[in-house]
Design a protein around this nucleic acid. Structure first.
Lengths: 154, 154
DNA sequence: TAGATCCCTTGAGTGCACTCGAAGCAAGCG
DNA sequence: CGCTTGCTTCGAGTGCACTCAAGGGATCTA
């Protein structure tokens, strides 16, 4: 077991949480992916995946007998979640912090929850800002549309 | 006249477009601000403002008899708009491109409109992504809430 | 057995958007 | 008059998130 919230009775919840966009459908019944398979699936480069591991953003990834990485479905779930966090603009350092909290264990539940709630608030604020920006763009676009309509008439 | 859409009949439109958050209300009737005033007003540093000018993201800013910058209300409007674009994650190079189009003149209306519409689409897509992310966060947060509720009961 | 392909590690390099430091000029104040 | 504040330029430095290069090992295909 690597990085999940890991409440014994309800890992099903976790699975649903991390449902991913599935560009390449996951081969059924498989649980060991090479780095290039994961790269294709996630859209990240192999370089980036190794880098994530180096900085502690990935749990320890399993290795083959020759030392090559073998990613599990759980690793894929985690990467999907990290992808979501990345979209929010959360700094990588904060994600590493979250990963560390998970590694520490159940006594960090509260802190993790707070971190997620803070993130949630940030994202909502960000959405508002963007909606504001759309309004500004609409004004400007309206200006250009009017100007061209006027020039066609004249 | 520096950087605006400059349709003779309706600059009022432009004014409304670029309405800014106004941390420091603009001194009424004034139209010449020092760089530090603008820094305080926009939240950018003086360094950044000079850098914007160097890279062509600002129109030519007026100077005092001693060579110091004197920003106009129009400059402030432009900076407010740039701030909005920055929030969308648009690269500075693209904003410089837009500024160049404005400098070229009216024959770039179409290209400017397209650029804004493309940006608008990007922003809307971004908002959707963020809303998706909020949903994921809500699931995770729900998981933590449930887990703690369960542990309180046991 | 040769070559291709995939993977490994370490450490350095890249691009973006600032951000700062140094050296020097000019205005205002006690 | 000296001091402080704030401005100028130019060029270098910073932090982030990758991104790549070099050198080498294991496995597969002809």
């Amino acid at each position: 077991m690597t990085l999940t919230e890991s409440s014994p009775a309800r890992t099903d919840r976790v699975e649903r949480c991390a449902a991913a966009p599935r560009r390449h459908p996951r081969p059924d019944g498989q649980d060991r992916y090479t780095i290039s398979e994961v790269a294709a699936y996630t859209g990240l480069t192999a370089h980036t995946l190794r880098w994530y591991e180096r900085i502690g953003l990935m749990p320890h990834v399993d290795r083959s007998h020759t030392g090559q990485r073998r990613f599990s479905n759980q690793d894929l779930d985690w990467l999907a979640f990290v992808g979501k966090l990345r979209l929010t603009g959360m700094p990588v350092a904060d994600m590493v912090r979250y990963a560390e909290l998970i590694r520490v264990g159940d006594e960090t539940f509260e802190e993790r929850q707070e971190l997620l709630e803070r993130t949630r608030r940030d994202v909502l604020r960000r959405i508002e800002e963007l909606q504001d920006t759309v309004a500004v763009l609409d004004h400007k676009i309206g200006f250009y549309a009017d100007a061209r309509w006027a020039s066609e008439r004249s």
